[in-house]
């Protein structure tokens, strides 16, 4: 037996002093919720789904109380953005519900996780580009409606220019913020997966 195997066998005693759960605790574990990355993303997704559905209900309600046609048109645009956002979220939900087979080899599993997490985050960033800037602009318009004369504001081209400028600033800002938040939450994780995929590719994989 070589030197390394001898040393490894000595280590085995140390390793066996690990976590030792009773059968009842194991039973509890298989009936509990996962704390993995997919479950974390799923929780975020659920919160966003509630937010979007709440938004849709609220803007449908506001549509009935809109004081004038301009407000009605703007609320309809926001509503359309929320419906598009809801459809993007629905795609995300489909993707997250497809279970990853852990019976696969390590390379295939890491690649699947990397693909799935990256795709879900891309959808999130797309929502950052569409839903949030429109929501913020809706706040701007609703505020204007309460504080001033909206007909007069949008009766001049400058009013539309200000709204467009707000959207032009907010859309990239919200997209950048969504990207930054995803980078903070999942950047290191994705980097680690990429590093391992690269290492496996350099190891000359020919299996899947």
């Amino acid at each position: 037996m070589d030197e390394l195997k001898e040393a490894w066998n000595e280590l085995k005693t140390e390793q066996s002093k690990g976590i030792n759960l009773e059968l009842a605790q194991l039973k509890k574990a298989i009936h509990s919720a996962s704390t993995g990355v997919i479950e974390k993303l799923n929780s975020r997704l659920k919160a966003k789904m509630y937010y979007t559905l709440g938004g849709i209900a609220m803007f449908i309600g506001l549509l009935f109380f809109a004081p004038n046609n301009i407000t009605r048109v703007l609320i309809s645009i926001v509503l359309a953005a929320y419906i598009i956002g809801g459809l993007i979220l629905n795609n995300e939900r489909k993707l997250i519900r497809e279970e990853i087979d852990l019976n696969n080899n390590l390379k295939a599993t890491i690649e699947n996780f990397h693909f799935k997490v990256s795709r879900v985050l891309k959808y999130e960033e797309l929502i950052g580009l569409t839903l949030y800037p429109i929501s913020a602009s809706a706040g701007f318009v609703i505020g204007l409606n309460i504080e001033g004369d909206i007909d007069e504001f949008f009766g001049r081209w400058q009013g539309w220019a200000i709204l467009s400028a707000v959207l032009i600033v907010l859309a990239p800002l919200c997209h950048w913020l969504a990207k930054w938040m995803n980078r903070m939450a999942f950047g290191k994780y994705l980097d680690q997966l990429e590093k391992n995929i690269e290492e496996l590719k350099n190891s000359g994989s020919d299996r899947n």
Partner: peptide, 23 residues
């Protein structure tokens, strides 16, 4: 090779290199 997802030949090469490094 089956568990990791790389070829058998590459497993042998890797093991040889890692063992040298560990020693």
């Amino acid at each position: 090779a089956e568990i990791i997802g790389i070829s058998k030949n590459n497993v042998a090469v890797k093991i040889h290199r890692i063992k040298d490094e560990l020693k």
